[in-house]
Amino acid sequence: MAMTPQKLAELLQSRFGDLVSAPTEFRGEVTVRIADAERMPEVGAYAKKLGCDFLLDITSVDNYGEDPRWTIVYELYGLDHRCHLRLKVDVSEEKSELPTVSTVWRTANWHEREIYDLMGLRFRGHPDLRRIIMWDGYPHHPLRKDFPLGGKPTDVPEVAFTKAAPLEGGPFVTAPGGKDSVEREPRAKEFGG
């Protein structure tokens, strides 16, 4: 009997009850929300036992202005049953911390380092939580929504310096779906707008 993502989600729900939400589907992709980030390694271990042995990606979303501010998204895949599953967890800004899943999937090591580097979320129990893209000593977390695209001036002597890039009025973004190219012409997009 073949495994489908819906069935995977239902098996997770039957094991964890209220912790796992009802699955939502969009274009064949099934997403499940996990209510409590602290139990994420437990859910991950069970998902791995169900055959999701391949963690494709961990990414994070900055819901700037909303509470909880952070949403962490886990993309799971099973090499045997070939089903994708997405797990979403919310973390509030005051906490900004959640347990690592690198004990379940070793690849989570670098994904979580990237999230720590660019968003500032800490992972408890991570074997080596340090910056992976920016350099050690860089003071900011660049992919947060309140960080400007051009960057801020910093200086770590002997390692690297940064300057604010001249943006000339902001990132120029196209308006997709405009009926002709004049409407779609990239215009300065106000930050925060």
Binding site: F147, G151, K163, A165, P171
Partner: peptide, 16 residues
């Protein structure tokens, strides 16, 4: 000049 990357991570021209 930094090219299309006017961002926090790209040096805006190696002449810096």
């Amino acid at each position: 000049t930094g090219g299309m990357y006017r961002s926090y991570a790209v040096l805006q021209g190696v002449d810096h």
